[in-house]
């Protein structure tokens, strides 16, 4: 399952996509994210997977901003930390 957490508003689309088939709930993203955007949940099919914390889902543009300076960035800490390559950002 690919879970798209986030929103679209007048300024753009801000979604973090988590591929739950790849995710092994290793918690590396939780350790890597300075904003505390991730958590491990038990999903509807009783599997442990990473998800975006509810309070961040409607403000991802701002939560993720420190890792995305306007002058450009190379690698996001969460994407880099995720060994099974389950995390991607839409913006």
């Amino acid at each position: 399952m690919r879970a798209h957490y986030g929103y679209k508003d007048g300024s753009g689309e801000y979604f973090i996509v988590l591929d739950t088939d790849q995710c092994n709930a290793c918690k590396e993203c939780i350790i890597a994210c300075p904003a505390g955007v991730f958590e491990i949940i038990v999903d509807d099919y009783d599997e442990e997977v990473a998800a975006v914390v509810e309070e961040h889902r409607n403000k991802l543009k701002y939560s993720c901003a420190p890792c995305k300076p306007t002058s450009g960035y190379n690698e996001l800490p969460c994407v880099k930390a995720c060994i099974p390559v389950a995390i991607s950002h839409s913006w």
Partner: peptide, 15 residues
Amino acid sequence: GRVQDFAINEKCAAG
């Protein structure tokens, strides 16, 4: 009946 992919617009009421 299992979910393959999903997206939710969590913020904007416009849709």
